[in-house]
């Protein structure tokens, strides 16, 4: 019995130690991390609200993270900056409010840490979400037609609708598509942080 107890304690100790080392200590290191106040008094990063927060939930729900990262690696490590995926490497403070984290591990598609700055056009994003090959020929991203209503061609444009480039009609984004766009538009880390000069 005593032997069993010793073995059990040894076994548990190994995993408790690593949990403390890999999660609790870094979290303790971040305990005083706060938003950065720039010269104009703005706080960075911004905490998402409203449509942007809903859009983030949609991003989680549709599993965008399985093909897109949201992290910019430092210079001389990969080509993230050279590809124009960011203005600077990303640092822990950029992710202050992230829950769940969406760092990602796979780049079947490009990094999205700054997609809002790189591609601000609503029309582009809506067409791309509706059927990615419209804007990106050869893309393997799945079409998200289920987020849109297709409207037959007519002379009068429905409000907020986007014309399909082949003139086959209009697409009317659902509230989910609008929030997803609002979130993607919000992904912009062009603000400066003292620990990460551009």
């Amino acid at each position: 019995m005593n032997r069993s107890l010793t073995i059990a304690l040894g076994i548990m100790l190994t995993v408790v130690l690593s949990m403390a080392g890999l999660v609790l200590i870094p979290n303790w290191q971040f305990r005083e991390m706060q938003q950065h106040k720039d010269d104009d008094g703005n706080l960075w990063p911004v905490q998402l609200e409203g449509a942007e927060a809903l859009g983030r939930a949609e991003y989680v729900s549709l599993g965008c993270v399985y093909c897109h990262t949201q992290q910019v690696r430092p210079p001389n490590y990969g080509a993230d900056l050279d590809r124009g995926w960011g203005f600077r490497r990303t640092v822990p403070r950029d992710y202050l409010f992230d829950k769940p984290h969406l760092l990602g591990t796979m780049r079947t598609g490009p990094d999205l840490a700054n997609i809002g700055a790189r591609q601000p056009s609503r029309d582009w994003h809506m067409l791309h979400l509706y059927d990615p090959v419209i804007t990106s020929p050869g893309s393997t991203m799945p079409p998200h037609r289920f987020l849109f209503e297709k409207v037959a061609p007519s002379d009068r444009a429905p409000e907020r609708a986007i014309r399909l480039p082949d003139d086959s009609g209009w697409i009317l984004p659902s509230a989910r598509a609008e929030s997803l766009f609002a979130y993607l538009r919000s992904l912009d880390k062009s603000y400066e942080l003292p620990e990460a000069p551009q």
Binding site: S18, M19, L22, V23, P26, N27, F30, M33, P92, R93, Y95, L96, F97, D98, K99, P100, H101, L103
Partner: peptide
């Protein structure tokens, strides 16, 4: 660790991969 509010930002990523 993934749900707790006290675990912040990238510490959640560390918890995830731990």
């Amino acid at each position: 660790l993934s749900e707790a509010g006290d675990v912040r930002g990238v510490a959640k990523a560390a918890a995830n991969w731990w």
